[in-house]
Design a protein around this nucleic acid. Structure first.
Length: 126
DNA sequence: GGTGTGACAATGG
DNA sequence: GCCATTGCCACAC
């Protein structure tokens, strides 16, 4: 068989969609629900790549569709990425607009409204 | 093509 | 129980 390195790289190119996949999952977050980076990373098959999720969010502006990044918070339920929005209070406003209580830049009842794609979606829809 | 980074998470002291 | 360190993996320079 021809071990064409280009071919191998081609498959790796599929991982380039990692960002888009993150946007996909983020878009699947139900209204009034929130999730954390680790859950999304875990759903993508790389539970250790939670940082990549945040990185993808950093580039979410590059995505065509608007990504509800305000529904994605860190494991502590803290709105760590609020500063990356149009305004430091936009993220909180959006969450409160969805019925999510945010106190001191932290999601109240985070474990209650926590939405795990790996459990809710239960499968890999590709 | 190597180095640095980053909106995290888990572990250790 | 809080602060510091490590791991991690993909992307930008």
């Amino acid at each position: 068989m021809d071990m064409n390195p280009s071919l191998n790289r081609l498959q790796k190119s599929d991982h380039v969609n990692f960002f888009e996949m993150v946007y996909e999952v983020a878009s699947l977050i139900p209204f009034g629900r929130v999730t954390n980076y680790g859950a999304i990373a875990r759903y993508l098959g790389s539970p250790q790549s939670s940082r990549m999720v945040g990185w993808a969010m950093n580039s979410c502006h590059s995505h065509i569709d608007s990504v509800p990044a305000h529904r994605v918070v860190n494991r502590n339920g803290l709105l760590t990425g609020k500063m990356h929005f149009q305004g430091p209070t936009v993220m909180q406003q959006l969450l409160e607009n969805e019925g999510v209580r945010v106190e001191d830049d932290k999601v109240v009842d985070f474990d209650k409204i926590f939405w795990d794609p790996s459990k809710e979606l239960s499968a890999f829809p590709e």
